[in-house]
Nucleic acid binder design. Structure first.
Length: 259
DNA sequence: TTGATTGTTACCGG
DNA sequence: TCCGGTAACAATCA
């Protein structure tokens, strides 16, 4: 379900719901990853997103760390509590609302030290003001890996997932198989700026939108080529390849393999 | 029942 | 050390 925009949107929303209040955190199925106990009635002092990781900070330097993985979902409802839908692994109960989290790959309680370690291994996050794009440029330019792989590597740049990868590379006319070291600085700056702009739209609209043609026109879809057959640019056939275990789409004509 | 899916990590081999 | 490939884990739906 999530790319970076989903997590940042949740962080902003949950900040309003939980910060300053005592929140009950429990795992209805008793399944925190590291076996830690629930957090009970501790004041929530911050909710932050780092890439696709969601961190709730409580008093006494306790952190609830959530990663939704491929299938995770977040449901937010007004109190009173309703019966859990599906397999709820984490439930947060605040003053006015409760939040159920289904299917995360990670749901664990961290201390300050392990939280710092986590943040250290996450690359610059497109949606954070403190992100340093130079770290992204340097990693890519010195790498022999494909740009299609690097964009999905969250230690290189945080927030991009499989759909944005395809759409970004198409918008910038870059073939996913081009190696990082073969790209130039301006291409990387364009990638960074476009990625950030697209993710910000995603946060605002709660939807991945990479095609901004007016509704009513022939190509009014919100995506350009992801899972599509025809390139809206040249009307050519869209190709598929697997890169880092996920399917990437590209246009042979618009995205040249030689940079 | 099978396959696909907006993700990540550990481990191994080259 | 870097890079690619594979398996494991998570949950739901068509």
């Amino acid at each position: 379900m999530p790319e970076g925009h989903t997590i940042h949107r949740a962080a902003r929303d949950h900040q309003k719901l939980f910060v300053g209040y005592k929140v009950d955190v429990s795992s209805p199925q008793g399944r925190f990853n590291n076996g830690a106990k629930s957090i009970s009635k501790l004041e929530c002092v911050a909710v932050e997103a780092y890439g696709k990781h969601l961190l709730y900070e409580f008093k006494n330097d306790q952190f609830l760390h959530i990663h939704l993985g491929l299938f995770g979902r977040i449901r937010r409802r007004k109190l009173p509590i309703e019966e859990a839908k599906g397999k709820v692994r984490v439930r947060l109960v605040g003053k006015t609302h409760f939040v159920d989290i289904n299917g995360p790959t990670i749901c664990e309680i961290l201390d300050e030290e392990s939280k710092s370690k986590l943040i250290d291994r996450i690359g610059p996050d497109l949606l954070r003001k403190d992100a340093d794009p130079n770290k992204f440029f340097e990693r890519v330019i010195s790498s022999r890996a494909k740009i299609g792989t690097l964009l999905m590597d969250q230690s290189v740049v945080a927030g991009i997932g499989n759909i944005y990868r395809t759409e970004l590379l198409w918008r910038q006319k870059i073939h996913p198989n081009i190696l990082g070291k073969d790209l130039d600085r301006s291409q990387l700056e364009n990638l960074w700026n476009d990625a950030r702009a697209l993710l910000e739209v995603g946060v605002k609209r709660n939807k991945i939108i990479t095609n901004f043609k007016k509704a009513g026109s022939v190509n009014a879809d919100s995506l350009n080529i992801y899972k599509k057959k025809k390139c809206p640019g040249c009307m050519g056939v869209i190709s598929k390849i697997e890169i880092s275990g996920r399917v990437a789409y590209f246009c042979v004509y618009c995205q040249s393999e030689t940079s």
